[in-house]
């Protein structure tokens, strides 16, 4: 039995953790090293670090910040944001990342996913999928977006998820752009569609606001892991509270 995982996410801009709503209106949420250590102590099963610096200047410091965060961790550490080449991925893996997460570049250069997976194994590659709801006849479809949720692609979420799995992704990090930062619940429908489409683990992201939300993402959405940022950074829940709640609802978690 593999435990369901609870994963805090650090969105880092110019060396600081920030958090916004639907990828905009960012506000400061603290120091990445301090937050990373705190979450690990609270029982986080993994930590995700996404560099969202828009400037080259900000991105240059990324490896150093990753190294500092990783030095304090004794849990798996996933790093993403701005990975364009195999060399970028290598630099992060050498400096303490256990897995790398690719988003925009996975769509633009699918070979990148393949080459990282070949060199380091599937378990090393997370493909991050940002999706937005759109009307499609009577129902809804989910469109994949790149460039921090600003550019629509030709893929629906299910299509891209299957393709990413074929390319060698070991895991999918699925974020609902609509729900991100709103603390009103994950997009369970999106999660369900993706988890029904692939055989690899799905990490739910975007929207956690209540304890029940985490449970729903796993039970109704079929997620193997739940990721959140706002609720942890701004003190609504501790990681431990979430895990205790999931355990009380009968899910297997590491306590």
């Amino acid at each position: 039995m593999v435990a369901k995982r609870v994963i805090p996410c650090l969105d880092v801009e110019n060396g600081r953790v920030v958090k916004g709503i639907s990828f905009r209106d960012l506000r400061d949420a603290g120091d990445p090293v301090e937050l990373g250590r705190r979450y690990a102590e609270e029982g986080a099963d993994e930590l995700v670090f996404l560099d969202i610096s828009a400037t080259l200047e900000g991105r240059r410091t990324m490896v150093e910040v990753v190294r500092r965060v990783a030095s304090e961790l004794d849990i798996p550490f996933t790093v993403g944001g701005g990975i364009r080449t195999l060399e970028d991925a290598e630099a992060l893996l050498r400096n303490g990342a256990d897995k790398v997460s690719v988003n925009t570049m996975a769509v633009e250069r699918p070979d990148l996913v393949r080459s990282i997976a070949r060199r380091y194994g599937d378990q090393c590659v997370v493909v991050a999928i940002d999706a937005k709801r759109e009307a499609q006849g009577e129902g809804v479809a989910y469109r994949v977006y790149t460039h921090s949720g600003t550019r629509p692609t030709r893929y629906t979420a299910e299509e891209w998820a299957r393709r990413a799995e074929e390319l060698g992704a070991g895991e999918l990090l699925v974020t609902s752009i609509d729900m991100d930062g709103r603390q009103a619940g994950y997009d369970v429908e999106l999660l369900r569609r993706i988890s029904d489409s692939v055989g690899i683990p799905v990490i739910a992201s975007g929207g956690a606001g209540s304890l029940e939300d985490f449970y729903r993402a796993i039970v109704d959405g079929g997620a193997d892991a739940v990721l959140a940022a706002s609720v942890f950074h701004f003190g609504r829940f501790s990681v431990r509270q979430v895990k205790e709640y999931l355990a009380s609802r009968g899910l297997e978690v590491r306590l």
Binding site: M1, V2, A3, R5, D45, G121, D122, Q123, G170, G199, I200, P201, D224, R254
Partner: peptide, 10 residues
């Protein structure tokens, strides 16, 4: 089940 076995086990 799927391999590799990745994750937390007892």
């Amino acid at each position: 089940a799927k391999l590799p076995h990745i994750g937390w086990s007892r």
